[in-house]
Amino acid sequence: MQVQKSVLIVGGTSDIGRATALAYAQAGWRVLLAARNEDAARRNADDIAIRAEGNVSVHLLDILETTGFSAFVDSLPVLPDTVVCVVGELGDQAQAQVDLSHATLVLRTNFEGPALLLGLFAERFAARGSGTLVGVSSVAGDRGRASNYVYGSAKAGFTAFLSGLRNRLAPAGIKVVTTKPGFVRTRMTAGMKLPLVLTAEPDEVARAIIAAAELKGRDVVYVRGIWWMVMTIICGIPERIFKRLRI
């Protein structure tokens, strides 16, 4: 009998986390949901267990409590085959410009916490000789823009971290996948006017993650291909012009 594979979803109460967990469970994986809010995580875990007839457990984790990470990894019932980190905090750019504690929250939630946690798993995976790490980063990290550069710079850091990790661990057979969803219809973007062709549904992101991490073995994935084009154009604009644009 084949041993059931396991996946840890970090950010198990977010809409993308829920969709990704469900997609893995439906593919027959054991799912570990890590989240800060136990009730909310339990609510998702029960739902996923019913829908997928799967094995789903809840593990408490605060992405800002980095000192607890080692103990958290040790406390898991298994060292998962795959870890997907979907944690993100869009924050409020205007507030982040003037309120250092808010800016710190955005930077730490999008960069420090996810990077340190995945880095820790990378060490365990390297020791085991196998494993896949998926980081949900953002197109906002491709180039800093006036409207969201605090969030964007944290995501840029996360993207660079994943890139380095991939570069280092590829020879050891550890896969590192960077996902850039673009706009996604979730609670984080509720109330925003989003352009239809650029906006993915959470389950679309989930399918893209599984396809990249488990099926096709891609390294960097834009959930909707059109985002690659958009960001290539945006990144190609010379800085002396770009600095005067409002996009």
Partner: peptide, 9 residues
Amino acid sequence: CQLNRMRSF
């Protein structure tokens, strides 16, 4: 529509 979780079966 966000109250879309199945609770028990």
